[in-house]
Design a protein around this nucleic acid. Structure first.
Lengths: 151, 151
DNA sequence: AAGGTTCGTCTACATTTGTCAACAATAATT
DNA sequence: AATTATTGTTGACAAATGTAGACGAACCTT
């Protein structure tokens, strides 16, 4: 089955983070690590693991009696895909501002900032004057867009 | 009741987008606009409206026999809050790269780019050399971080 | 006044998600 | 061998979500 990459629930996300960070983990490690962050019972974590395996986001390797779990999808891919899916829900016209607010809040490393600046410099070359709102169905006109059009 | 701002389901987002864009809408308008984008029955949309009212994300004004619906939370606030909540799920160390990938994909207006550049220039002044991974519980060490520490 | 239309509310039902307990198989200990 | 611990699998159940039919009150048409 294909991994359901955009179907990771918040609780499952916690599990995946550990797996991605450790590479291969036993359910025991997963449980012990997660319980240092979350007040979840062993059972709960086992269920989450089971569901992730069913969703094909985790794969198993037999290690004697137990299993070792590892991710079937790279962390970066999953993050990109989910973040992009989330942004697809937002009004196209207002994504830029949202990004500005987000970046203001986020701690970023020097290297990240440099990389971002490079991408922006590049995009600036071909960026349109404005990105229109896409909240209403095609035929309909968005008030705000009209206003801006007349500016 | 306080609006459950981070409790907007994907289907509900669709509804909110219309409301935010139009300001005040009747259920009739909502239904007719939404059905141009989604293959939802009248009933389905009515249910969504009802749930949004219950979540205090929509408020109503009586307009004769019917209601006019409007948002109780500004679109920008909701977007910021949700995007930030989503990023909280991501490994702190990899958020920067995710942002880079996101921005590469997103169409941005000139003005947005300029604003982003300003924020980045400002952040660059105080940005740390690196933001450590926060996927594992405090005591535990993240492999990748170690590696980077030794660089 | 009678019948159709509009609109809000209720009920319904399958899935998904958050949370667990119980159980069975297997391995480790005594 | 008997007991205990470990670990994967099942079953459960409430709450949230996607989806939609049915019903009743209010309104408009004739």
């Amino acid at each position: 089955m294909t991994p359901k990459i955009d179907d990771i629930s918040p609780a499952e996300w916690e599990v995946m983070r550990i797996v991605w960070t450790k590479g291969e983990v036993s359910s025991h490690d997963l449980i012990s690590l997660l319980q240092q962050k979350r007040d979840w019972s062993d059972s709960t974590i086992k269920t989450l693991i089971g569901r992730l395996v069913k969703k094909a986001l985790l794969q198993t390797t037999k290690d004697g009696r137990r299993f070792l779990y590892s991710a079937t999808v790279a962390e970066g891919i999953a993050m990109d895909s989910n973040v992009q899916a989330m942004f697809a829900n937002l009004c196209a016209m207002k994504r830029g501002q949202t990004l500005v607010n987000l970046i203001k809040e986020l701690p970023l490393a020097q290297a990240d900032i440099t990389a971002l600046q490079a991408v922006l410099a590049d995009k600036a070359k071909t960026a349109p004057e404005m990105v229109p709102c896409d909240c209403l169905p095609d035929e309909t006109q968005c008030e705000t867009c009209e206003v801006n059009d007349h500016e």
